[in-house]
């Protein structure tokens, strides 16, 4: 199993990986609050990006509505905690099936009725928007006024109820990212993974090679939705407040897909690397602008757009394939 998982990765890459992991494990010991917050965001987007990548990067189904699964996960766990005092890890047992069901619903509609490509993408946005407006009117979760969790005491960390210091969230997200990475690698090397790639490359050819494309596309959506909803649970307990306008927003969905796209679609390192690149650039912008005393809303985002444009033009395949080729990190792409 371990042998298969590391196959095709150069030893030096593995050493770099191990060193990085060790570094990130000790990072909270010396990182400032500022840096820690940034790392939390990075691993949040690395994890959600990895989850999204299963659908688009592996199975070729473009979802532009992944905020739906974040939102459903967040709201389910938070509402159960607020109303019944249910711990998030138990809430997860409700949140994940809800998101998976939402994914299955979208997948079923789309794949049974041959809604594909751009049409599929719009369907995913539409369902997310539909749900957002629905939550705007759902009194049980506070409607548009928002849902608030009792604020954490930083004195001690309670992992079971996820109340505590940001470092705790950092470790949870770090573990989740590592888990998602290994899980994705294992899936990609499985029979299912091969079938996903076949569907991504040419769906009709995949069907004529005997692949039940409906089934494997459904699996991709459901697994991706379920994994994404975990990030939603963390989101809720980290921020302690939820507004439909924010969690379900299209811009959330777009943020989720940027990391894997910038890092390298369909690659395993892409989402993680992409999240680092994006957050670092965004932070650098912010610092730089502060330095120059520019304080106009939007400047930061504007530069972000310019950087994105640059990435699209200069490294269209993504940063990871480019880096990996440059530095000879991989014997073969996973």
């Amino acid at each position: 199993m371990i042998g298969r998982l590391t196959e095709g990765i150069r030893p030096r890459t593995l050493i770099i990986l191990a060193a990085l992991l060790a570094f990130f494990i000790v990072a909270p010991l010396f990182a400032s609050d500022y840096l820690l917050t940034m790392l939390i965001l990075i691993f949040y987007f690395a994890y959600t990006g990895q989850s999204w990548n299963i659908m688009m990067g592996f199975a070729g189904q473009l979802s532009l509505g992944h905020a739906l699964y974040v939102g459903l996960g967040a709201y389910a766990a938070a509402a159960l905690f607020v109303h019944f005092g249910m711990a998030p890890w138990l809430g997860l047992a409700v949140a994940v099936p809800i998101s998976a069901a939402a994914g299955a619903f979208i997948g079923f509609l789309a794949f049974r009725f041959r809604v594909a490509g751009v049409y599929f993408a719009v369907l995913t946005i539409a369902v997310a928007e539909f749900t957002r407006i629905g939550f705007d009117h759902l009194q049980w979760t506070g409607a548009s006024a928002g849902l608030f969790l009792p604020v954490a005491q930083y004195a001690h960390n309670d992992l079971w109820t996820l109340r505590g210091h940001p470092a705790m969230f950092y470790y949870v997200l770090l573990a989740a990212t590592a888990f998602a990475f290994i899980a994705c690698r294992a899936m990609l090397q499985s029979r299912m993974g091969y079938f996903w790639l076949a569907i991504r490359e040419d769906e009709e050819a995949a069907r004529s090679a005997g692949i039940d494309t409906f089934r494997y596309k459904m699996l991709a959506v459901v697994i991706s939705a379920a994994m994404t909803s975990f990030a939603g649970v963390i989101y809720a307990f980290y921020y302690n407040n939820l507004f439909p306008e924010q969690v379900f927003n299209i811009s959330q969905s777009i943020l989720i897909i940027l990391a894997p796209m910038v890092g390298g679609l369909g690659t395993l390192f892409g989402p993680i690397l992409g999240a680092f690149v994006i957050e670092t650039v965004a932070e650098a912008m912010r610092t730089l602008l502060q330095w120059f005393g520019v304080d106009l809303p939007g400047t930061n985002q504007l530069f972000f757009g310019v950087v994105l444009l640059f990435v699209v033009l200069a490294v269209p395949e993504g940063v990871w394939p480019w880096l990996s080729k440059r530095m000879g990190l991989m014997e073969r792409e996973p």
Binding site: L296, G298, F304, L309
Partner: peptide
């Protein structure tokens, strides 16, 4: 280019437009 690549390009353009107007 593939659809997602066009998408990313246009998203970048959209972000630039929105924030230029915001400024």
């Amino acid at each position: 280019r593939p659809e997602y690549s066009q998408f990313l390009l246009l998203i970048a353009i959209a972000i630039i437009i929105v924030n230029t107007l915001l400024i």
